[in-house]
């Protein structure tokens, strides 16, 4: 079998690109010295929210627009998705934060205490108003990574620690690509996973807070992912006590029952980002780079993969190109 493209990196950017190319009858191989996805890559620690409208608070229009197509792409890839929307709440004393968030985002509606109780019974009586982003979705990143891997293996795609580069080289190595992308930087994120059978949430909930914003994503079976801090720097070391306290405290403030939760995981990693925090394709004579997915790995990798495939197979100029 001839290989049309060699993808460097088996993180979310590399796997999504491989999947998109192979679904268009191109043949690819993947090289990653660390092997298949795992705790060594930042995709492993992601939240998995497909929430383009919420992200519109601090990001540019292109992320909101292209991110809207992410859920459909993941569904096509066979990844289980929850289409339950996102709920955005504040603590009583920060209620004006909700007005600011509403002004800067779209595709939401204000819901009152009754509607909040109907959406999330466990939050009944805790907030008198919230923003509901009905069209948003979420997925479990580790399930998504495994699903993509399985699908790729079934198509004969290999993930090897090393191999001869064949065909077009597509560099999806994240921060490791700083050797050729000097304006790439690391942005550290820290997360926690809790088990708390006493609380049931059916959709991601964002708690707006001027100092410690938090999101909490239900993973099912009483498991919740809490994220995420955002610190400049590519430190990949363990979570600090300060961040742990801030994350867990915010969860406790969202619902006191989280006080009894078991902390089953604490994780940290650094995400690759360009100065504008928007991902892009960079073309060099030797390679095509797909990088800078920042905190939007699962939201933006589908659009980046489609863009890359459109360019490679049809010559279409990518919208996000250096």
């Amino acid at each position: 079998m001839t290989v049309d493209a060699t993808i460097l990196g088996a993180g979310i950017a590399g796997l999504a690109t491989a999947f998109e190319l192979t679904s268009r009858v191109a043949s690819v191989q993947i090289i990653d010295p660390a092997g298949p996805p795992g705790p060594h890559g930042c995709s492993w620690w992601a939240g998995g929210m497909l929430a383009p409208h919420c992200e519109g608070e601090v990001t540019e229009e292109v992320i909101v627009r292209l991110g809207r197509g992410a859920a459909a792409w993941w569904a096509r890839a066979g990844v289980p998705l929850s289409y339950r929307g996102s709920l955005v709440v504040t603590l009583a004393r920060d209620r004006r934060e909700l007005d600011r968030f509403a002004r800067r985002t779209t595709a939401h509606r204000l819901v009152n205490a009754e509607e909040i109780a109907a959406l999330e019974p466990d939050l009944a009586g805790r907030h008198d108003r919230a923003l509901f982003f009905e069209t948003e979705a979420h997925l479990s990143p580790r399930v998504a990574l495994a699903t993509l891997c399985e699908a790729l293996l079934a198509k004969g795609v290999t993930i090897q620690p090393e191999a001869r580069h064949l065909g077009r080289v597509i560099d999806c190595r994240g921060l490791h690509a700083r050797d050729s992308l000097p304006d790439l930087r690391g942005v550290r994120g820290e997360m926690a996973v809790l088990r708390c059978p006493e609380v049931t949430l059916s959709r991601p909930v964002r708690l707006l807070h001027p100092r410690h914003p938090l999101y909490i994503v239900p993973r099912g079976d009483g498991v919740f992912m809490l994220g995420a801090t955002q610190l400049e720097g590519d430190n990949r070391g363990p979570v600090t006590l300060r961040s742990t306290v801030e994350l867990l405290n915010a969860a406790f403030a969202l619902h006191p029952a989280f006080g009894e939760a078991e902390v089953i995981e604490l994780g940290a990693d650094a995400r690759p980002a360009f100065p504008d925090n928007i991902p892009r394709i960079t073309l060099t004579p030797e390679r095509m780079h797909i990088n800078g997915l920042f905190r939007h790995g699962f939201l933006m990798s589908p659009a980046m993969a489609v863009m890359a495939a459109d360019y490679l197979l049809a010559g279409t100029t990518p919208e996000l190109i250096a």
Binding site: L184, R185, G186, R188, L231, E232, G233, D234, N235, G237, A270, P275
Partner: peptide
Amino acid sequence: REAAGDGTGQGFWQL
């Protein structure tokens, strides 16, 4: 507060 003060935030400091 902005970055880990252990030299890993060099990209940001340079900026």
